[in-house]
Design a protein around this nucleic acid. Structure first.
Length: 285
DNA sequence: ATGTTGACCTGTAAGC
DNA sequence: TGCTTACAGGTCAACA
């Protein structure tokens, strides 16, 4: 499901509710996600204060002085901040119960007890994961990742250098998280459309100048999507329950058969690297 | 090394 | 109203 803008939207929605709070309890209902949830999550997390919520690539990290919980949302995962009394639904695999803050120590205006909050991880397909990263260690899943697309490390020169000699389609090249992280099937389609590059073109056959256009498009589109709260196609919601509004601004993704926003020709659909791909055969070369 | 394919799992929508 | 099939925002492991 989520690409960088959706994960970043999740991080931003989570942070104000979570940072500085202590973990009161961890409830594991279904530990067999993509990988089993390691014992450290239930053993070490309770009692710890969550100092920060960070994102690296499409991973989220909940930092504590004992180590970090490392989360990936896979295709269908989501995190919500909910009142602790919210009934548990299907695929609600993990609860991280948060200690009440100052506001919770008293009573609400109507006299009812504030139930506190819970960070709830739901993932129907279970392609996501919840792992543990000890202090001072970089989890092996985070090793070998490419640069963050919104950092200065990432630019057209980087793409140009890494792509020399590579025959794979540029679409596949860009979705390789060792080249650049965070770009998935939606935003690769949008960025290639904006840069006027065919997704089928061999990565090694693209000029430095066109890679500069492409890197700029990636940055611009990701940043803009974040300001819109990400893309809600089926069920993506921020931790507060708000949908993302970037879907309305998609130019190519999911629009096969519709007229190209530039030239009006029907957008073409094909399978590239086992993923649905849409582009304009006139505007993208 | 690079490239290609299958696998993981469930929900939903479309087709018959 | 069913039943069956195809497809979905990711990425790892195995193989050529």
């Amino acid at each position: 499901m989520p690409e960088l803008p959706e994960v970043e939207t999740t991080r931003r929605g989570l942070a104000p509710h979570v940072e500085g709070r202590r973990v009161a309890a961890v409830t594991l209902r279904r530990p067999d996600l993509r990988w089993p949830i390691p014992a450290e999550v239930a053993d070490l997390l309770p009692g710890q204060r969550i100092d920060a919520v960070r994102r690296r690539a499409k991973y989220l990290l909940l930092d504590t002085s004992a180590g970090s919980a490392l989360l990936h949302l896979g295709m269908s995962g989501s995190l919500r901040v909910l009142p602790a009394t919210t009934p548990v639904g299907t695929h609600d695999h993990v609860d991280i119960v948060l200690d009440g803050g100052p506001l919770d120590s008293g009573r609400l205006r109507d006299g009812a007890r504030d139930p506190g909050r819970v960070l709830r991880f739901n993932d129907p397909r279970r392609f996501g994961c919840l792992l543990w990263q000890p202090v001072g260690v970089t989890h092996e899943l985070l090793q070998g990742l490419g640069p963050e697309p919104l950092s200065d490390e990432f630019d057209g020169d980087h793409l140009f250098a890494r792509s020399r000699g590579r025959k794979a389609p540029v679409k596949v090249f860009l979705m390789d998280q060792r080249i650049v992280v965070g770009v998935g099937n939606i935003y690769v389609a949008e960025a290639l459309f904006a840069a006027g590059i065919s997704p089928l073109r061999a990565a090694g056959a693209i000029s430095r100048e066109r890679y500069r256009l492409l890197a700029d498009a990636i940055k611009r589109i990701l940043l803009h999507a974040i300001t819109r709260g990400g893309t809600t196609l089926r069920d993506f919601l921020s931790p507060d329950g708000a949908p993302g509004y970037f879907e309305q601004e998609l130019s190519a993704y999911g629009r096969e058969g519709e007229p190209c926003p530039n030239c009006g020709r029907a957008l073409r659909h094909a399978w590239i690297g086992q993923r649905a791909t849409v582009w304009c055969t006139r505007c993208q070369r």
